[in-house]
Design a protein around this nucleic acid. Sequence first.
RNA 1: GUCCCCAUCGUCUAGCGGCCUAGGACUCCACCCUUUCAAGGUGGCUACGCGGGUUCGAAUCCCGUUGGGGGCACCA
Length: 480
Amino acid sequence: MSVRVRIAPSPTGDPHVGTAYMALFNLAFARQQGGSFVLRVEDTDRARFQADSEQQLYDTLAWLGLDWDEGPDKGGPFSPYRQSERLDTYRPYVDQLLAAGHAYHCWCTSERLKEMREDQQARKVPTGYDRMCHGKSYDERAGLGGAQEQPVVRMLVPEDPPLSFVDVVRGEVHAPHPDDQVILKGDGFPTYHLAVVVDDHLMGITHVVRGEEWISSTPKHLLLFDWLGWERPQFAHMPLLRNTDKSKISKRKNPAARLTWFVEQGYLPEALLNFLGLLGYSQPDGTEIFTLADMARDFDWARVNTVGPVFDLDKLGWLNGHYVRELAPSDLADRLEPYLRDAGLYTGTADQRALLDSAVPLVQTRMAVLSECVELLRCLFVSDDDFAIDPVAREKALGADAAPVLAACADALEPLAEWTTETVQAAMDSALIDGLGLKRGKAYGPVRVAVSGASVSPPLPESMALLGKDKVLRRLRAAL
RNA sequence: GUCCCCAUCGUCUAGCGGCCUAGGACUCCACCCUUUCAAGGUGGCUACGCGGGUUCGAAUCCCGUUGGGGGCACCA
């Protein structure tokens, strides 16, 4: 029997980085085993459902190259892959559990349940449903207060449920004793616990790879598998990604929890994927630069750590810079275009593209993320009207003693017939270094600020060559 | 409060009883290169939480403790 794994995200907002993390490990394992990777959408929570979330999920996973074999958008032998479309599938199993006495109706209102829990916590006893409804009909229960007409269905958890199991990454795990979990909600939708078990079984899932936060509810799932007479899948509970303060990574505390953030910032998908593969995992030979294919080749659950790794943006930035430097210049230019466009510096004319192609080599080693190209390239693409000199840079480099330098530079460049990096640099050097007796660093400073508008810029003679004689002369004289 | 999971440099990690006076990477610092900033090169700082065992020998095994994290929903 071939391996089948799945991710089961909920469309409740921006796709979460944890989803990509799980997807990566699922996929690495599936690819290595020659198995299938299934994408199933767990949209059983109508209150939190967001319509555009599912498409964003497809987009970001595809962007990362985490390709699924079956899913709502692709179909597959076990369609549908959206739980909201499988409501009829779950009902018979609920009825079966009810008939077997493994489940019962509960009419308690959420207010009563809340009070019950608060009371339990105040008395310092473990929280859990007190079975007030168990064994009663609605009429019997209604007279006792705190009841509503529409019932839910709860599991009748026995005294001795299965509490331990062998986890693929952790070995033997002991999980807490569950309470009488709701499996069918008042609105007729199943809860995660029922849906996940039914779907995983029906879809032939062999390995359930999910976050550590699910360990404590695994006994409920084991019970359901057993009651329904189904073989249990293997479980792999991955460590949780953390914020800097070690708490579970969250959109509130960490922008990087949103997958779309990486696209906005200009991280390369190959870098993010590589980085995710470095969290809680390592290559046998210690290699740190690797692809999904590399990871799948010798994937081993035993190499997965049980400690939750902090999501460290510094290292991702370094990795991203590494991948940026590896890109073919024309490829990098393609990827830079959208950021320049958004900044209003670029419309995509042939001239602009030619300028971009020439400028890419100047900035390729200078950015960690793609969005940084805007500031790096601004001085080359900005119109004369919008060109401005940074006030701080002006203060530092364009004082009174700068005027002679700029003037000498402009005068030396003026007569140049041929305008290239070499001729520009030669003219500057002879006028400023030989002529004024300045060191190169001292001489280029004011020129850099006058021409680029900032004290940090791409290499100066190269930039001036790309800018053209007219613009350079105009900027030099304007700064006088 | 209660139950469960976890514990090596600031961060990601290697290590699965002797090869460890603990290795690599990121960050940081210094130097080199250098027209700014990067990139690149060289070097450096920094860790086995604590206490007991087991053993000839423990980062590695056991117990306790402390610390961190997660669950305890008609959310997943």
